[in-house]
């Protein structure tokens, strides 16, 4: 029997004492030799940083995913809040898929937004279907020291490609 969905609402401004959890950005255990850093900023339509966004990451990769970090095992789920400058960071392992799935929540955002941070820029059905300037917004750019930069622009120039799953 088909059930009508419960509507979404904004995460609001006051989730900070409830949703972030210890080690939420540490998907790879501390000191893992193959760990990569994925980081970036969230910006609004005026180009201002969004200091109260919550970002979730899912890559699975054979793990069930969990909130709890046991200090030993990799887990494919991460969650971090942006800091006062709109910046976030996670430490993870290179995903088996070319991308890490990203879900964005924020005060002012009535319904979360899905996107993907592609760390591998090779042929991909989704990337190949996008115009070049739009495609660019999904590419995590490698800097130094195994660090990849992935900024999220909610609106306007350079707006990130957001996904809808049907």
């Amino acid at each position: 029997m088909t059930q009508l969905p419960t509507p979404s609402h904004t995460v609001g401004p006051f989730y900070g004492y409830a949703l972030p959890f210890e080690g939420g950005g540490d998907m790879a255990p501390p000191g893992h030799p193959s760990a990569i850093t994925l980081h970036g900023c969230v910006y609004d339509g005026a180009g201002a940083p969004v200091p109260d966004a919550l970002i979730e990451f899912w890559q699975g990769d054979g793990t069930p995913g969990s909130l709890h970090r046991n200090g030993v095992d990799f887990t494919g789920f991460g969650r971090v809040a942006t800091d006062g400058a709109g910046h976030w960071t996670v430490h993870t392992l290179a995903p088996k898929a070319p991308y890490i799935s990203v879900c964005v929540f924020a005060r002012g955002l009535t319904h979360h937004l899905f996107t993907r941070a592609y760390v591998n820029h090779g042929p991909d059905a989704l990337l190949d279907a996008l115009a070049a300037d739009r495609r660019e917004t999904l590419l995590a750019r490698q800097g130094s020291d195994r660090a990849y930069r992935f900024d999220i622009r909610l609106q306007g120039e350079g707006e990130t490609v957001f996904l809808e799953f049907r």
Binding site: T10, D44, G45, A46, A48, V50, W58, Q59, G60, P64, G65, S66, G76, F77, P95, A97, Y99, I100, S101, A106, R107, G108, L109, T110, L113, F114, A125, L126, A129, L130, R134, L154, Q155, G156, E159, T160, V161, F162, L163, E164, F165, R166
Partner: peptide, 28 residues
């Protein structure tokens, strides 16, 4: 607060037929 925090471009549709291996079809 929604005024500057919503995308203006349409969302890109991902379907089970164009992305059967999508990581998002699994979850924690």
């Amino acid at each position: 607060s929604s005024v500057l925090r919503h995308p203006e471009q349409p969302l890109f549709a991902v379907t089970a037929s164009n992305a059967p291996e999508a990581v998002e079809l699994t979850g924690p």
